[in-house]
Write a protein that binds this DNA or RNA. Sequence first.
RNA 1: CCAGACGGCUGGACGGUCGCUGGCGGUUCGCCGUCAGAGGAAAGUCCGGGCUCCACGGAAAAGCGGUGCCGGCUAACGGCCGGCGGGGGCGACCCCAGGGAUAGUGCCACAGAAAGCAAACCGCCCCGGCUUGCCGGGGUAAGGGUGAAAGGGUGCGGUAAGAGCGCACCGCCUUUCCGGUAACGGAAAGGGCAUGGAAAACCCCACCGGGAGCAAAACCGAAUAGGGGCGACCGGCGCACUGCGGCAACGCGGGGGUGCAAAGCAAUUUCCGGCUUGUCGCCCGGGUUGGUUGCUUGAGGCGGAUGGAAACGUCCGUCCCAGAGGAAUGGCCGUCCAGCACCCGUUUUGGGAGCGGACAGAACCCGGCUUAUAGGCCGUCUGGAUCA
Length: 115
Amino acid sequence: MAKAQTPPARLTRRAEFLRLAARGQKIAKHGFVLQAAKGGQEEAVRVGYTATKKIGNAVIRNRAKRRLREAARLVLAGRPMPGVELVLIARRETGDMEFSRLKQNFAKALDEVLS
RNA sequence: CCAGACGGCUGGACGGUCGCUGGCGGUUCGCCGUCAGAGGAAAGUCCGGGCUCCACGGAAAAGCGGUGCCGGCUAACGGCCGGCGGGGGCGACCCCAGGGAUAGUGCCACAGAAAGCAAACCGCCCCGGCUUGCCGGGGUAAGGGUGAAAGGGUGCGGUAAGAGCGCACCGCCUUUCCGGUAACGGAAAGGGCAUGGAAAACCCCACCGGGAGCAAAACCGAAUAGGGGCGACCGGCGCACUGCGGCAACGCGGGGGUGCAAAGCAAUUUCCGGCUUGUCGCCCGGGUUGGUUGCUUGAGGCGGAUGGAAACGUCCGUCCCAGAGGAAUGGCCGUCCAGCACCCGUUUUGGGAGCGGACAGAACCCGGCUUAUAGGCCGUCUGGAUCA
């Protein structure tokens, strides 16, 4: 695999999250829920992360987001996906599942989105 | 050694690899180098301050809210330290919503005869009556019973039976004296006991307090749409409105707001309907997305000296120690150290595989309180056991 590069661009606006929730394609996997859609004219893929209060306190939510962020950085490094916007929603098991499985599941989910 | 009391500390270590945020330096503007980067509670948001805005002439009163033994500390506090009083514990120590109930109003359920200017159900005693064990009258708060509470307690005297009726001691109240800054403690004299509980029912007294919060607040301000002003050019008639003059009718002027007309727009024409009617230039103000500031040098950390019983204060030296913004401070891997429990061997030492890090994540900043917290460490003290 290519050497890991800088993390993908972030989604930060609430409106963008809401748009993907409304119109995006939705895939649930062990470890996360992925929402994806063709976005604007930007070159690079853009990713947002969500962890709700349902999965735990602040420590657990932050850890889940960090792991999702790292998985996205590693997996997306080998796949240019211009103009695509993704939202990763953390689940209860995101914090303590095998990291390699998390990466695998994310790669699989991306394949399903692209097809 | 066992059991316990109090106070304090710690909150895994090292390495590899790939990343994130900020400062500084360099840069060929692509980046590169270097340094720093969560907590004791960062938590709950319960108090106290700084800071910002709002309100307000000052102060006071009323109202509302809070605090409530005394002295000290502190910027301040509902915090801390030291003491006092009460309660608990063999003890080290621990706990207390701990002002006022003779300022006033109201309350004291149930039970009980009676619950607040006391009161006689049973019992006890005396007197009278008779049907000789009952009735009536009176005395009595020592005993029984009820109750959270029954109008001081114990003992002796006393009495018809009783009773602070009398006496002693204890308690209580008043006064005086002594000790103490004070809370309070001690003593003496007097009083025969009045002054029950509850202030977490209202209330009274003393002291404190404007309100809202960094999403506070200040500044910059794109594109698009919209507002206003000035100038040039273009523009038919009327109306609303409006400036000046006039008692008024009205006159002169403004009037692209609006009605009609006219022109234009989309598709070949007509009709109906819809939309547009200023254009250009310059300037001003408001303001959204966004950006910047506030934003980390502070009642600051560390070390030393010194005052104090302590909380804490003073002086000197030294250091700069997170600043994000869908929110950085990390992801993964390895080795080790605690810890858990399993197998083999065993007097012990040992060997092997496994599981596995408590509570918890800064959001303007400080001082506290409260709550959560696996495991480990240190100190002082108490009770007991054993040895000498």
